[in-house]
Simulated scan of single mutants.
Amino acid sequence: MKPALLRLAGPLFAGTVWLAPGVALSHPHIFAEARLEVVAGDDGTITELRNVWRFDEMFSSSVVLDFDNNSNLKLDPDELAEVGQVVLESLEEFSYYTSITEDGKSVKVGKPEAINVDYQDGQLLMFFTLKPGQAMPLKGKLTFGVYDPTMYAAMDFPTDDDLVVIGEKFAACKRQVVRPDPDEVLSQNGGTLTADFWNDPTGNDMSKLFATRLEVTC
């Protein structure tokens, strides 16, 4: 893997941060606005989750510099495809930053067919669709969210309308967007949020406590 791929796969997509020793990992270095559409089929099960990520201009510019193989100051279709392939392979172990639970139990996601990448107005965009790794009927309490377990990238939903459900079967369910208050999370979990948590570059389940999520109760 060439250095450019290492730089992209390292900080954001593989949980390995190429920083000098002693640099803390407790705050994000990359920022992205996210949109998540949860789709239910006519049979009353979750069929897919549609993700859209728009990255900050600084990170987007660094990707252009790394993947602009012909030095024309833009990302051509083959270069965009190369970025998408790197993300497709390196985010698999992190479930593509997508969190699903069914009555409190985590549900794995399948590998998407592709990560589609575009570059618009100075920002890198990624589009991809995931499917739950098991049948998920609209029953009980379901949650859906997007977060980076390493806390190196901040995945933000600008408005509640960026976490949506699609499908007539959702009409029988209640849904709400939950945005945890960091101060409350720290207060309620101070005993478990230790220094090891804040400086763990491999990520852990505790970081989901701070993540915005969509809750669906049927």
Score class of each variant (00 low, 15 high):
Met1Val: 13
Pro3Asn: 07
Pro3Phe: 01
Pro3Arg: 02
Leu6Ile: 03
Arg7Asn: 08
Ala9Gln: 04
Gly15Lys: 01
Gly15Trp: 05
Val17Gly: 12
Val17Asp: 15
Val17His: 15
Leu19Phe: 10
Leu19Cys: 09
Leu19Val: 13
Val23Asn: 07
Ala24Pro: 05
Ala24Ile: 06
Ser26Ala: 14
Ser26Lys: 12
His29Cys: 11
His29Met: 15
His29Ala: 12
Ala32Arg: 03
Ala34Val: 06
Glu37His: 11
Glu37Trp: 09
Val38Phe: 03
Val39Gln: 08
Asp43Leu: 08
Thr45Ile: 04
Thr45Asp: 14
Leu49Gln: 07
Arg50Val: 13
Val52Gly: 13
Val52Cys: 11
Asp56Thr: 01
Val64Arg: 00
Val64Cys: 00
Val64Met: 00
Leu65Gln: 07
Leu65Ala: 11
Leu65Ser: 05
Leu65Asp: 06
Ser71Phe: 10
Asn72Pro: 03
Leu73Asp: 13
Lys74Ala: 14
Leu75Val: 08
Pro77Leu: 04
Glu79Cys: 03
Leu80Cys: 08
Ala81Ser: 12
Gln85Gly: 06
Gln85Ala: 07
Val86Trp: 00
Ser90Asp: 10
Glu92Ile: 02
Glu92Gln: 13
Ser95Ala: 14
Tyr96Leu: 03
Thr98Cys: 12
Ile100His: 04
Thr101Gly: 04
Asp103Glu: 14
Val107Glu: 06
Val107Trp: 06
Val117Leu: 02
Val117Trp: 01
Val117Thr: 13
Tyr119Trp: 12
Gln120Phe: 06
Gln120Gly: 00
Gln120Cys: 02
Gly122Tyr: 02
Gly122Phe: 03
Gly122Lys: 02
Gln123Met: 07
Leu124Asp: 00
Leu125Ile: 05
Met126Val: 09
Met126Ser: 10
Pro132Thr: 06
Gln134Met: 14
Gln134Asn: 08
Ala135Ser: 15
Pro137Ala: 13
Pro137Thr: 05
Leu138Asn: 14
Lys139Gly: 13
Gly140Ala: 10
Thr143Asn: 08
Pro149Gly: 08
Thr150Asp: 11
Met151His: 15
Ala153Tyr: 04
Phe157Gln: 05
Thr159Phe: 12
Asp160Ser: 15
Gly167Met: 07
Glu168Gly: 04
Ala171Met: 08
Ala171Leu: 10
Lys174Arg: 12
Arg175Lys: 14
Arg175Trp: 05
Arg175Gln: 15
Gln176Pro: 01
Val178Gln: 07
Val178Trp: 06
Arg179Glu: 07
Arg179Ala: 04
Arg179Pro: 04
Pro180Ala: 05
Pro180Arg: 01
Asp183Gly: 01
Glu184Lys: 12
Val185Ala: 02
Asn189Tyr: 13
Gly190Ser: 05
Thr192His: 11
Thr194Gly: 02
Phe197Thr: 11
Trp198Asp: 00
Trp198Gly: 00
Asn199Ala: 02
Asp200Asn: 15
Asp200Lys: 09
Thr202Glu: 10
Gly203Asn: 02
Gly203Thr: 06
Asn204Gly: 15
Lys208Leu: 13
Leu209Asp: 02
Phe210Thr: 05
Thr212Arg: 15
Thr212Ser: 15
Thr217Gln: 15
